[in-house]
Amino acid sequence: MSTTLFLILCLNGLQYGMLLFLIAAGLTLVFGVMGFINLAHGVQYMVGAYLAFAYVQLTGSFMLAVILSLVTALILGLLLEHFIFRHLYNRDHLDQVLATFGIIIFLNELAKVIFGPATLSIAPPEFLSGSIQLTETLRYPIYRFVTIFAGLVVALGLYLTISFTRIGMLIRAGATSAEMVSALGVNIQRLFMIVFGVGAMLAGFAGVIAAPIFAIEPGMGDNILIVAFVVIITGGIGSIGGAFFAALLVGLIDTLGRSLATEILSTVFNPSFANQIGPALASMLIYILMAAILVFRPKGLLPAKGVS
């Protein structure tokens, strides 16, 4: 295998990792702060992608579509919070599973009804559509660089918000002890609403920037949701830093594994065996990673720390 291919795979892995981070960040916050299991988080990612598609059709401008999509995703998140999730925070987990499962079923079907079952795609904006010459033999699409960059910016923004602002302090406190936060006399309802809205918007944002890269289709959020779960278990529930590193790790392992597992196996085993086992092993890698973390570091790589 050439170094060039390896570099490209690493960049792809990073870019997938950033996407996972955007999804996992909201999920882990909602989970850590509210103890709420939101299965519908993945479907909000799908909504982001379809919104981007619709707004690009409507306005013809990618950038405008990004902004409109974010606003719409935020509004949708707040509406869901207001009408449904708010009433489920104190319910048992089974209720949360069922209600969010119902939302998934509905939104997946709605997407199918409005946009059809076929996969859709949009082109990256004109000014981001080229590629950059990295080395003599390596060119990499600008748009993918921009997604990595966008992920980094969001990560930095979240880190600063959570470390240095009052609301960040409350979120950290909430991840350790919700009673403590309400003891501080904070309007917990509003805190939840904000966290939820931001989470929904981040998932939507992930959907928007994924739209020019991946196929837009009904159910596209379902599988990535589970990978996001793997990320937050690996990183440590409620921990943004953990989500960030785990997302990159999972993104890299998954991307490299899928391309290289067969090749690596065939250096040890005979090729036909490697061909059979390779793909299976590749798709299992991130779950094996998660299992290993569970055994050796049950609280995750970077567990959430409360304010002390």
Binding site: I84, H87, L88, R91, D95, L98, A99, F101, G102, I103, I104, I105, F106, L107, N108, E109, L110, K112, V113
Partner: peptide, 19 residues
Amino acid sequence: HEWRLIYGPLLVLMVLFAK
């Protein structure tokens, strides 16, 4: 044909109102 459009919200309503 799109019965899931009804089924999904039914689930949500059931959780919210008919425990």
